[in-house]
Design a protein around this nucleic acid. Structure first.
Lengths: 344, 344
DNA sequence: GTGAAAGCGCTAACAA
DNA sequence: TTGTTAGCGCTTTCAC
């Protein structure tokens, strides 16, 4: 094929030849090692430019055993991944941090356990230096997979097992939930219900625990499990109103669910916050600022959490856990803040 | 840690030794080559299982020169990528097709031309077998980059140059736009304006051309350029109403912009479709079904287009363009369909 | 049908 | 400071 694009890419060998040096020296220059005399550096640089040389990553990876790429694995059907702004923000943070460290983000979408085998192969195949895993549900085997593949791993959200060698980044879900409920209480509300997230996720459990910390004697029927979607939030709200027509406050475990609840309340003619105060969780700006009325909520800095996850992983990669020492890296829990808008 | 994950991964050598065969034979079995006697196949398989062997992809890539991964490059700031449901749908289609062919999707986010150097390095580094590029603006150098790296490439949307060797997948933007305008005309509307997309993108230009095909004598001031965001749609609508208070129809070049226009119209007390009929483009279900009133629009099957892009690329990879022959692969233009809801 | 051997392009000891 | 020499783990002729 005379297709120019099919001219084989130049190798380091070619660069070395052109610069009249050995492959080793060429390699040193390309990798910015110290101790190559200036004129040689110059010649090699020039050869690189003239030839349009770019190192072959596979060859490099084969010897250095790492490849400047990190996998982001989402234990959630694509539908939710692309639909819930939460993920977008987290990935944005990760992506920024990774880019700044010249590392590539490889997004691994899993449409259910069926894809896990593929993911396992990918990780074990040494495509990436580490893995970031999100949105784990109870008993998810993804972390085990990553561990078996020998991948440094950071988990988004507290895992449901405790194990000091597992790194994660989470926000203070429980504390945030307490703040939310106290805010409602401060508003004089006394009949407060909770729309929980899926209880197979620790974030949901922790927020529920926070709710109970403040209101330990709440009737269990005042707690309804949602699924982190607007529809789920609306359904839960309907159920709650059906059970307790005299509610005056609701703490929803996510803004997205709160938005569904708000929509439902409006269609039923409830006034928010007059009749019923609603508070969310997340401060997903694209949601909370656009509900009617705008949503009072508990802010967690999702993008920052993404950045922190990436940073932690990068560190874990460059400084692999030393079996002899106490692990030098540790998980991170970020603070939350009450953001008051109009709904409570 | 006595971390088991630090046991080095088994190599083909180890498998061969355990099975009592040569590395070559082990390789044949692993790769499913014909012509290895059954008992040997069995022994190798068993060794693979026992050792938990997974081929090292870097080593494999080094010799086969391809690596079962495809890059998806989005020429758009992350903000829009994660915000506009268009991308999500397209990626979903791509991801499905790729997964079905056991190929990995590597998402390369670019936050502007500054990142292009990184992307170029990545492509030339041979990390991936091909590239899918989206959302090109005029004079974007991404395709040139990919070509220089010798990457088979498929572009999402018609590129702004013509060149039969460039593969792309697009929908019939111009025909769809004509249908939209004719629908408005069929409703008896006579003062029809157009909210265009950014005119440095061919999709916008083609839709505008379709508009003009049907309404060649339209006052140029009835055409306002938006930016494919809801805010842009709202701004354009405001401007249009300011210029022509007697409008009775609007064709917006995207559902997302139409939703912004609708929101603006509602706040100003316009009734849709009574006072003003609005039609969009895309049939982004998550948008069009939820506007008030639900949006009449021109449907393009975005997910399917994603699938087609991936399929085309996969074919281009396995059957590299032969300069001697006429290219055996060709671009694809998919049909559009009018979807009538309530807004027009 | 199976194995021996030659690399793929690169980095990293080790010598010089 | 520079070059020589081994591999990294795998696929793939080419003999047997």
């Amino acid at each position: 094929m005379s297709d120019p694009s099919f001219a084989p890419r130049p190798t380091l060998e070619a660069v070395a030849a052109r610069a009249g040096v050995s492959r080793a020296t060429a390699s040193r220059v390309v990798n910015g090692s110290e101790g190559v005399r200036a004129p040689l550096v110059e010649r090699v640089r020039q050869a690189v430019d003239e030839l349009g040389y770019v190192p072959n990553q596979a060859a490099r990876t084969l010897v250095t055993r790492h490849n400047g790429a990190v996998a982001v694995i989402v234990a959630e059907p694509e539908t939710r991944f692309f639909t819930d702004p939460f993920f977008a923000q987290q990935v944005r943070g990760i992506s920024k941090e990774l880019t700044a460290h010249d590392s590539q983000l490889v997004l691994l979408l899993t449409e259910g356990v069926a894809d896990y085998e593929r993911v396992g192969r990918y990780l074990a195949g040494g495509h990436v230096d580490g893995a970031l895993i999100f949105s784990l549900h109870a008993d998810d085997s993804l972390p085990a997979l990553a561990r078996k593949a020998g991948m440094p791993t950071v988990i988004g959200g507290r895992p449901d097992w405790s194990d000091s060698s597992t790194l994660y980044v989470d926000c203070d879900n429980r504390g945030g939930a307490r703040d939310a409920v106290r805010h409602l209480l401060g508003l004089g509300r006394r009949r407060i219900a909770h729309i929980a997230g899926p209880l197979d996720q620790t974030a949901s459990v922790d927020r529920l625990d926070g709710f109970r910390d403040v209101l330990p004697d709440t009737d269990p029927r005042m707690i309804v499990e949602g699924d982190f979607t607007p529809e789920g939030g609306a359904r839960a709200m309907t159920e709650l109103l059906h059970r307790f027509p005299d509610l005056d406050g609701v703490f929803a475990a996510s803004d997205v669910m709160a938005s569904g609840a708000l929509r439902m309340l409006r269609t039923r003619g409830w006034r928010v916050p007059e009749d019923l105060a609603v508070i969310g969780f997340d401060d997903m700006v694209s949601v909370a600022e656009w509900t009617d009325p705008p949503l009072t909520t508990i802010r967690q800095d999702i993008e920052e959490m993404g950045r922190l996850m990436a940073r932690l992983l990068l560190r874990a990669i460059e400084r692999p856990a030393d079996p002899e020492n106490v692990p030098s890296l540790s998980s991170i829990v970020t603070p939350t803040h009450l953001i008051v808008r109009a709904s409570a």
